[in-house]
Design a protein around this nucleic acid. Structure first.
Length: 744
DNA sequence: TAGCGACATTCGATATGAAG
DNA sequence: CTTCATATCGAATGTCGCTA
């Protein structure tokens, strides 16, 4: 929003004065700014009329004099403090003071004063006064912006980065509600002005949104990266005991005290994502009342006082015994003499509650050898961003809740904007969808499936529903899976629970003991529309957990020449942690005779999805071990090395899978490039298809390998020894079966 | 360096309006 | 009429600059 009032010169006028085209300025652009200008002028006239009609109306209300002088004194004080005001080329810059005029006792000023009083409603708290002042400030800004008589430097309608700019209507409403009679204006006049203001606001909304986006982009660029946070965590773990020792030995020293505070608060913020106020509000009582469990190795501290306590209740901090011992140290007042008297865990050298925790954090941040800006908000922001990027919807919700805010709020204010790479990925996905559509149409033309089969197919209510259902990118069955990492798969697999229930229903409660014969190799589903038959076989491992495990057999029909199809898919196994879209047995006629490419792709993707999910499940266990290590779980050196080795193996497996994925992407890209206009020949297209098939196959192979490796890695983790062993047995048997089939 | 004022930013609750 | 998305609002936190 320009700093000059809108009425002074519109963009069209400026344009016409530059070009010399005054005949029809509105023809220069299509922004309707002239129309807007006229309306603004009408509005200004109405405002002027209001202030003329009631010039210094002797207000009987006591509040007016008081509020006017209040604001006056404030502004006068400010003037002495920060002069002269620099004119800004555009909107007011951060830190600019814009309230620099004398109150003249006009109607709108009195209205704003009244509004301020109304907002205060007799409250005397610092925050209440601050907020009331802020509302008044916003209103003033708008008035200065709107009224051209005011000096230009005061006409700055500052940053549109706040939705509170909309509060300019409030003085008018107050005026109408509180002293309508004195104003000598009709209700309709007020309504007209308010209506115009609302419309104007709606029209500048676009600019506001664009500006907000720009601000967010800036924030995105300033995000802390995970390495910085990890470095800080490691530094904190090392430095906190050192600083405690130093203080114990040498007695209280302010610098060490402050740095120690900063380290501990930063550490707790990184691991929990809480606001700083949770830490500054933490009292000794909270620590003393901490809940402990797991043989006194885990602690939960509940803090009553924080911003969103009314919605989320107490803020919870879960600590291990080392972290808790640090807080206990402060609780016992060992940090400083005043600390003994202070009720707050985190306090100043005077024993007072911290008012500027970020200063302490910065002290520790630089002590840890880290550069760049840091604040609790930045940490919180990065926690939300990482959760959004790497966790499933459910997990993200949990993290958000633990941070005491709504996930939607997190997205609105904290989560960074998508990177260029992500944006490009979206474009690729779109083109991929286009190609899938093309393939489907092509397949439809080729298909010689008889009408009866079609009718039979459409009779299956569930499948028809599936077809009507849009293909969501977060579904494991979506075609985009072929190019998705296992991580993405796991994320997607946890979304849209309603759909899952509809498609699959609950896991049968019958145990293997009840149906021994059937469970040995019971066929659960045989489906997919044509060309290929997928049979899901439940594998009995005499283990109840294995009820969820299925073997997927892809019966590829041979081509008319007797040769296997060019894109023979390998059978693979997987754990159906999430249901597939395959039809249940009663609704699954055999489609092995009708062959379509789409069906083949569908089946391949389903198989990949299942395999990838299985790998993911195993990887999670290895991940847990890694996290435990990062958090400093009391592991021995040997254990740590083993865990590291396991992690390495898992990483290798993941890398292999990634390579396969990249290959698939390349093939896809080639195809997309062709669609986008690259004049590829038919032969090239065929080559691309072949490459894709190869990549898909490689993906399946790699996934199975990864599965085994990860299962082995899991085994290495001593902490999860039992589970790991089980996983290993299952993984290996699956791996052998998989290889056996490949060999055939 | 604590404390304060000012302002930016955050964030949940509620109102409002469009779409199905 | 219901559902969903968005706007609005009040209240809170975070940060900066200044002063005693």
């Amino acid at each position: 929003m320009p700093s000059t009032p809108m009425s002074s010169q519109s963009s069209c006028q400026r344009y016409s004065s530059q070009t010399g085209n005054n005949s029809n300025p509105s023809s220069c652009c299509n922004c309707k700014c002239l129309e807007l200008l006229k309306r603004v002028e009408a509005l200004e006239a109405a405002l002027k009329k209001m202030s003329k009609e009631a010039p210094a109306v002797a207000r009987t209300s006591m509040s007016s004099a008081r509020t006017s002088s209040d604001i006056q004194s404030t502004t006068a004080k400010k003037r002495t403090r920060q002069e002269p005001l620099q004119k800004t080329p555009d909107s007011a810059l951060k830190g600019d003071q814009v309230l620099k005029c004398e109150m003249k006792g006009t109607l709108y000023e009195k209205a704003i004063g009244d509004l301020r009083e109304f907002k205060l409603s007799g409250r005397t708290g610092r925050k209440a006064i601050d907020n009331a002042n802020q509302v008044a400030t916003h209103c003033f800004r708008f008035c200065y912006y709107m009224i051209p008589e005011l000096p230009e430097e005061q006409g700055i309608y500052a940053n549109h980065n706040s939705e509170h700019d909309a509060k300019y209507r409030q003085p008018l409403q107050t005026c109408q509600n509180v002293f309508l009679e004195e104003s000598r204006l009709k209700v309709e006049d007020f309504d007209r002005v308010l209506y115009e203001l609302t419309r104007l606001q709606a029209e500048i909304r676009r600019d506001v949104v664009v500006r907000q986006q720009r601000v967010k982009r800036q924030k995105t660029n300033n995000q802390l990266d995970s390495e910085q946070e990890l470095s800080f965590l490691y530094a904190a773990k090392r430095r906190i005991p050192m600083l405690m020792d130093a203080i114990d030995k040498d007695g209280y020293q302010r610098d060490q005290h402050s740095t120690l505070m900063g380290y501990l608060m930063g550490y707790l913020c990184v691991i929990s994502g809480h606001r700083s106020v949770v830490l500054t509000s933490m009292t000794k009582e909270h620590v003393a009342n901490a809940d402990q469990w797991n043989d006194g190795t885990r602690f939960q501290i509940l803090v009553d006082e924080h911003k969103s306590v009314r919605t989320f209740g107490q803020a919870s901090l879960v600590l291990n015994c080392v972290e808790f011992s640090w807080l206990r140290w402060f609780h016992d007042g060992k940090c400083c003499s005043r600390g003994t008297d202070s009720t707050n865990i985190f306090h100043t050298s005077q024993g007072c509650r911290l008012t500027k925790p970020s200063n302490f954090l910065y002290l520790a941040w630089t002590d840890a050898g880290l550069k760049g800006p840091v604040s609790f908000n930045l940490i919180r922001s990065s926690v939300a961003t990482q959760a959004e990027r790497h966790l499933s919807e459910t997990e993200r919700r949990k993290v958000a809740r633990a941070m005491c805010h709504d996930p939607t709020t997190a997205e609105k204010f904290y989560v960074a904007l998508p990177t260029r790479e992500l944006a490009y990925e979206n474009r690729r996905l779109r083109m991929k969808a286009l190609m899938c559509e093309k393939r489907k149409v092509k397949a439809k033309r080729k298909s010689k499936v008889c009408d009866e089969q079609e009718a039979c197919y459409s009779l299956s209510s569930e499948s028809s529903e599936d077809r009507d259902e849009p293909v969501y990118d977060d579904e494991p069955e979506s075609s985009s899976l072929s190019s998705s990492s296992s991580e993405e798969l796991s994320i997607r697999s946890q979304r849209r629970p309603r759909l899952k229930r509809k498609l699959f229903g609950p896991v049968p409660s019958t145990s293997s003991k009840q149906k021994p014969e059937a469970d040995i190799m019971s066929t659960v589903a045989a489906a997919t529309p044509s060309k290929i038959q997928v049979t899901l076989q439940r594998v009995d491992n005499n283990n109840q957990q294995c009820l969820k495990e299925f073997s997927i057999v892809l019966n590829m029909p041979r081509e008319s020449n007797g040769r296997p199809p060019s894109r023979q898919l390998e059978a693979t196994d997987g754990v159906l942690t999430t249901p597939s879209k395959l039809r249940p047995p009663e609704a699954s006629p055999s489609y092995s005779e009708g062959e379509t490419e789409a069906a083949e792709a569908e089946a391949a993707e389903a198989a990949e999805a299942e395999a990838a999910e299985a790998a993911e499940a195993k990887a999670t266990e290895a991940e847990d071990a890694a996290i435990a290590e990062a958090e400093g779980a009391e592991a021995t050196e040997a254990e740590a090395r083993e865990a590291e080795a396991a992690e390495d193996e898992a990483a290798e497996a993941a890398q292999a899978a990634e390579a396969a994925e990249a290959k698939a992407n390349e093939a896809e890209d080639a195809e997309i490039a062709e669609a986008e206009g690259a004049e590829a020949t038919e032969a090239e297209a065929a080559e691309a298809e072949a490459a894709e098939a190869e990549a898909t196959e490689a993906d399946v192979v790699e996934t199975t390998e990864a599965e085994v490796t990860e299962a082995e890695a899991t085994e290495a983790s001593e902490a999860e020894a039992k589970e790991a062993k089980k996983a290993k047995v299952v993984g290996r048997s699956r791996g052998r079966r998989g290889r056996g089939r490949r060999g055939r």
